[in-house]
């Protein structure tokens, strides 16, 4: 328990100098995706939410200040604006999180159908409290508000899937499954959301553009916005 990372105790981010051009880490694929998504809106600033989802995937599951800086640069706005947006929404992780996030609903229906029992069980099982990450960096446990699948209460979100009608036994089996799985990770959730924005023809376009870039540059990842 003592080794667990408490989200609230994580060191404050270092200050970023906006006058310096940021170090860009988006992959060529991410650049292409953002380019397509920008066209959905009359101005590029509106692509803020999808851009932050792309960044969350590209930076490995959370948004360090460098990621916010890169989004600001690519959308032609300031760091402050991006940080303001990123900190408003709960699904953007402002601190490092585990590989898999277990988000247990304890809202009204779940609270009377055993949501808190599931949360307590997970706390005991993982040896951490809600809001913490296991020392091995595998799991982050979070208590969340209504996931709106109340008919299947108690419900938990794991990455891009909901698991409902939970019992302690079901949760144990699920944890075993998740330990050896590449599914339902924090990064996969961000990618799923990004892909939902892109139409079939846009996705095909991206594949073509990537294949072309690969052929042209000998396989080097591009860094151009």
């Amino acid at each position: 328990m003592s080794e667990a990372i408490r989200l609230s105790e994580y060191p404050r981010a270092k200050r970023i100098d906006e006058r310096q051009p940021p170090e860009l880490r988006f992959s060529e694929r991410a650049v292409q995706e953002l380019e397509r998504i920008k066209r959905h809106y009359p101005n590029k600033r509106a692509a803020m939410l999808p851009a932050l989802w792309i960044a969350q995937r590209e930076y490995g599951g959370h948004l360090p200040p460098e990621a916010l800086m890169e989004v600001a640069y690519r959308l032609g706005t300031s760091y402050a604006v991006v940080e303001g947006v990123a900190t408003f929404y709960t699904m953007y992780n402002k601190r490092p999180v585990g590989r898999v996030m277990l988000e247990v609903c304890t809202n009204l229906t779940c609270s009377i159908c055993g949501g808190y029992e599931i949360l307590r069980h997970l706390e005991e099982k993982l040896g951490i409290r809600a809001g913490e990450t296991t020392p091995d960096g595998q799991f982050t446990l979070v208590e969340v508000e209504c996931l709106n699948d109340c008919g299947n209460a108690p419900v938990m979100q794991v990455g891009n899937r909901y698991f409902g009608r939970l019992t302690p036994e079901k949760v144990d089996a699920l944890l075993e499954e998740l330990k050896n799985s590449e599914e339902h990770t924090v990064v996969q959730l961000a990618d799923t959301i990004v892909q939902c924005h892109l139409s079939e023809s846009e996705r095909q376009d991206i594949e073509r553009a990537l294949a072309k870039a690969q052929a042209g540059s000998g396989g080097q990842d591009g860094q151009n916005g």
């Binding site: 959905h40 809106y41 600033r45 509106a46 692509a47 803020m48 939410l49 999808p50 932050l52 989802w53 959308l75 303001g84 947006v85 408003f88 929404y89 709960t90 699904m91 953007y92 508000e145 209504c146 959301i193 939902c196 924005h197």
Partner: peptide
């Protein structure tokens, strides 16, 4: 177009949702 939210009850309110689609805080 599909526009995905990022975790905010408030964005279900129509004018907050407009802010969110325009890339702002959902207020």
């Amino acid at each position: 177009y599909i526009h995905m939210g990022a975790g905010s009850y408030e964005c279900g309110e129509e004018s907050a949702m407009m802010s969110s689609i325009m890339g702002e805080r959902g207020q």
